[in-house]
Computed example of a mutant assay.
Amino acid sequence: MGLALSALPPVLQARWSLSVTTIGWIMGTQSVATLLSRLHAGRLSDRLGGDRALTLGLSAAVLSGLCYVAVILPIWSRPIALALVFLGRLFMGLSEGLMVTGGAVRIIGAVPPDRIGAGMSWLGLAMFAGLAAGTAAGAVIEQNASFDTVAIMASILPVAGMLLSGWSLHPASHSAAHGAVPWKQLFRMVLPMGLLLALSSVGFATISSFLVLAFAQEHWVSGGYALAAFCVGHVAARFAGSHRIDHYPVAISGSVMLLTETLGFVMVWLAPDPGVAIAGAFIGGAGFSLTYPVFAIPLLPAQP
């Protein structure tokens, strides 16, 4: 995911002279696909277990990379090439929805009840460490080699993940002892915390879609590194706070995270130079880091 986040927007602008708005729509397709896939990913995880959802998510990531590989071939017309890019973003959104949901289900079933928040934090830490490495690597590869290499790597890495994990060979059993919850009741339960998560995620969606282009518009050459700084801040906050969030009220820890995130994004907005913008991206990533486990913990069922 990280490889394409930093490398794809400049390619879209250079090869097809697309406007910033059009590129934003294409990049934002991933978030839309993630949103639409989350409910199905949750049902799949409940029925087949988190391991199987993770495996399917990695498979969708492979398909996303293969779409980018296909775009490289000089046989497509402009509309078909852009349709392949669009399809690649859809597959990556599906991948994100499956992996985040499946990973969370697996963590909930694998750690003690009083450490679920920490376990979910470590899951997110691993994902955003990959994003940080991927965005930096994508920027370097695209600048020094080509997008072709980025596309090939984006196809191979998820396959390596499946081979190393062995998830597809050992699907975990899953208990449905709690039974089904009516849809209306479930919606009322998740609405307050869901709204907070939605608001906290707006900044991440904006950063991932437009930060690299904003740097290019200012003629700053470090857009990919700014995106990596956001991910590094996310990882750093997970390291510093993952073992503590289970011990503070949601109102306190959630407010601290949201205010920190706001400060970072204001710094990016008002940045007079790339250094300040990169620092703001780091702080924004740190603030966004723990919002998911903090606001998700109250939604977990009571443990005996």
Rank of each mutant, 00 (worst) to 15 (best):
S222L: 15
S77Q: 07
V266H: 03
R106F: 04
S208P: 02
G287E: 01
M1F: 12
A176Q: 15
M267G: 09
Q13F: 03
R52Q: 11
S95Q: 03
P9E: 01
S45N: 02
R47W: 07
S165W: 07
L36D: 02
W122T: 09
E142F: 05
M162P: 14
G134A: 04
M99R: 01
F230R: 04
Q30Y: 14
P112M: 04
V212T: 12
A226Y: 02
F86P: 06
V32W: 01
A133K: 05
G284L: 09
L48W: 13
L169V: 06
V212A: 04
L39N: 00
P301Q: 06
G97V: 02
R38V: 15
L87V: 01
L131K: 04
Q13H: 07
T260R: 07
Q30E: 12
G224W: 01
G57K: 05
A236T: 09
S165P: 08
Q303K: 00
P74V: 00
T291P: 03
T29P: 05
P112Y: 04
A14I: 02
H247Q: 15
M153N: 07
L35K: 14
S208Y: 06
A14Y: 05
E218P: 03
Y225E: 12
Y248F: 09
P74D: 10
I116S: 07
Y225I: 14
L197M: 15
P74K: 09
V212H: 01
V221G: 10
F215V: 08
G166L: 06
S121Q: 14
T21G: 13
P298F: 14
H174K: 13
R106A: 09
A110C: 08
V212W: 04
S289F: 06
L87A: 09
P293G: 09
V150N: 00
A302L: 13
G57Q: 00
M267L: 10
A145T: 13
R43H: 14
G102Y: 00
R78T: 13
P182D: 03
A4C: 10
L35D: 05
A177V: 15
V212G: 03
L263F: 06
D51V: 02
I297P: 11
T135V: 09
S289W: 05
G285F: 04
V32Y: 00
G275A: 09
L196P: 08
S173P: 08
S168W: 14
H170Q: 12
A228C: 11
L73P: 10
G124M: 10
L98P: 07
L195Q: 05
L270E: 05
D246Y: 03
V202D: 02
S173L: 15
I75V: 15
L270V: 09
